[in-house]
Design a protein around this nucleic acid. Structure first.
Lengths: 241, 241
DNA sequence: TAAATAGTGTCTTTTAGACACTATCGC
DNA sequence: GCGATAGTGTCTAAAAGACACTATTTA
């Protein structure tokens, strides 16, 4: 950083600074399909369009703190897996003013997803449809529960695409998948989560083998209840030794 | 985004905004070891410490444009593979003021790396040493050509760690490795690049098989020159069909 | 006992590592 | 021919997919 560059930023009145915001992809699984929580915009621009929950970042607020604050304020969620996705900084991404947005991906369990809908009735659970065009992803679409395609505000369609791509990429080598499940779950539920995100069906024995070999699963001995067939064993996530 | 939140950001005098900068990891391979170009700070804070080249982002400048500008201005490089790494936004990462920094990874060919050193003599080529602690990465160290460990400014050691980790992760499934090589290269050179980044030695036949199977390599029929042994065939990178 | 899903055994296919072998260059 | 590295054939080991089979529960 040169001296000139430093001074350029040091005098708050000398140079205009961009606003910085965070936008959150609040993702869960609904009906074996990835779903995201959206808010409808009431004001210009993109009035009537749907947007990711977000907020400006305070001058004394860390980026991850801002993301967590949105999680609390907009969805009433105390805790969730939350990771940074990407920072979007095109000059004209918001027609009003320069806003640089740091996008985050938050993964919600079924319960957390439902709780958010209850805590903030303005949130709409939108299904994410991915035109499985090979692997490139193409553009994703967000669908309302009634099946209508939702127009997305700003560059939020791009953010949503990236969220799905990132999740697909990390699903197999990391433990993010467990963030979408309750504390106790069956292997079938885990496989359903993976299949929903990947958009493909997986081989059952191979999937079980791989998951068990990774050492992520702790058998509880307990079994699910209320089924009309053989109940599956319940597992718990554990970090490998 | 609520109305209140919008107004909060809309009036430039009402709320203080952070400065936004870009910092670049200019990476190349030197002596079969990843290397990065650093600048020594002359001013407080971290005077004497070494920092990644960077700059503030202009109010009418896109993030990727700012990154490219740094590439030109600080290293005289016209073109390089450049991808966003992560955005660092801890409140106190710069003691002077709030600066949010978007870190970028630029991959330089050997020629580009040498050209940068010539274009800006203040740049120091530092070897990156990774304490191969399993996979977690631990903290990387930057070493001057004379072998001295360089103290890094701000959170730039963290950025460097992330750069190496990202590169390692992408190396096998993406084509980033070719960005570190000249247009024509031998399979041995490609393997050397992979080994330098991964910090391990690889199996030759398996490596060749995998690379050829991916369809990334176009044989040229030409061979390297000036060797005192059998010259290897030169390949060119091509996108798979 | 029937229906439905849980969970497993095993064969095949694919892919990676090991290692030795052949090929080709300058000297 | 010698030395050195390029490039390959093949065996082995590990992992993934396919598929059928057994096991266990409720109704």
């Amino acid at each position: 950083m040169t001296e000139a560059a430093f001074l350029k930023g040091y005098d708050p009145t000398a140079y205009e600074r961009p606003s910085v915001a965070v936008d959150l992809v609040l993702m869960g699984i609904r009906d074996d399909c990835p779903a995201v929580l959206l808010l409808q915009r009431r004001e210009h621009p993109f009035a009537g369009h749907w947007a990711l929950p977000g907020s400006f970042v305070g001058i004394e607020e860390a980026l991850d703190s801002a993301a967590e604050r949105v999680l609390h304020e907009k969805a009433g969620i105390a805790e969730a897996h939350c990771e940074q996705l990407y920072t979007f900084g095109a000059v004209d991404r918001d027609p009003r003013m320069r806003i640089i947005s740091v996008a985050w991906l938050a993964l919600l369990t079924g319960d957390a997803f439902a709780a958010a809908l209850k805590a903030n009735p303005a949130l709409l659970p939108a299904s994410i449809k991915v035109p499985w065009a090979g692997e490139t992803g193409g553009e994703v679409r967000a669908m309302a529960p009634d099946g209508k395609v939702l127009p997305l505000a700003f560059d939020h369609a791009e953010i949503l695409s990236l969220a799905i791509l990132r999740l697909r990429g990390k699903l197999d080598y990391s433990d993010v998948g467990f963030s979408l499940l309750p504390e106790l779950f069956t292997l079938r539920q885990l496989q359903d989560v993976h299949e929903a995100i990947l958009g493909t069906s997986l081989n059952k024995p191979a999937f079980r083998r791989r998951m068990l070999d990774k050492g992520w699963l702790a058998a509880t001995g307990a079994r699910e209840e209320g089924t009309s067939y053989r109940p599956a064993e319940l597992f718990r996530f554990q970090r490998p030794l």
